[in-house]
Design a protein around this nucleic acid. Sequence first.
DNA 1: CTCAATAGCGCG
DNA 2: AAAGCGCGCTATTGAG
Length: 333
Amino acid sequence: MDLSLKKKTAKGQPSTNEEALKLLDHPLVDLIMSYRTLTKLNSTYLEALPRQINRRTGRLHTSYHQAVTATGRLSSSKPNFQNIPIRTEQGAQIRSAFIADKGNVILAADYSQIELRIMAHISGDQNLIEAFNNNEDVHRSTASQVFETEISMVTKDQRRKAKAINFGLIYGMSAFGLAKQIDVSRTEAKQYIDGYFANYPGVLKFMEETKEKAKSQGYVETVLGRRLYLPQINSKNKMLQQHALRTAINAPMQGSSADIIKKAMLDIQAWINKEDYEIKMFMQVHDELVFELEEKMAEEYAKNLKALMSNALKLSIPLEVDVGIGSNWQEAH
DNA sequence: CTCAATAGCGCG
DNA sequence: AAAGCGCGCTATTGAG
């Protein structure tokens, strides 16, 4: 058995992160991974959160920060409400501990695929715009194009790969990164990316123009004009420059998404104030807003909230919003 | 004891 | 040589 760690950390130490462990063939690997998952959930949430309950209100209260992130997102701390678990079974149980008062419910409303929709809007790519105008499953739609398959014939694996391509594009990922992500050869990954750009030429144009613009003017901007300056964009250090180029691709999408949800929050609070409604907007998780309100008003308010979020900003494609209602945050999803 | 750096991992 | 964006929290280690 080869137990040598095959990856290095940024500082050159042998890495033991999940990716490095998965390269090993040893029965302890699964045990270590599940140990880490469980201890992470226990120390960061189960032990830490109850200690931070406010004596007066009996509730947890986070702090949101408006001037921390590079892209214009909010950040959240003490405790961070933007990284409450959800992806694993045990994580979802932790989320279900966020409950509404008696007679109230939790309403969670999140934008669907907002960053890809923004990419469609900014790039003007006809193919991508059409997919969103028809409210298609965008990963399935991408798979159908890249793999030249009828929509109805797209397999689970093709959709999984297309989803990785779509996310990768938002982050400025290379063929190397995509290959690692979906476990195919670099050549194959390159073919997928080429196939993508052949079908979505507007997206390719957007990527190229964004990088050129970032180099010539030294910043990129969101749909509402928020700028991110990229001082490393013309650095002779290629590593720094490459990072700046990926940031240049990502920031308009992540930042525009932040613009939109902030506008929605202002519109929603104005609506609540004007109507004097008993409804509290108490969490924001980047593309999601969470409310507590009287159970009997939930269905009615859901329609208004959905409309206010969808119409926060007019883009060339519709903004879809999914709303869920439940007695706790987990159920509201 | 505090502080800072590092590694790892929770979320969008 | 690296290779995927943006955050905040916990545990560990080493220094003072």
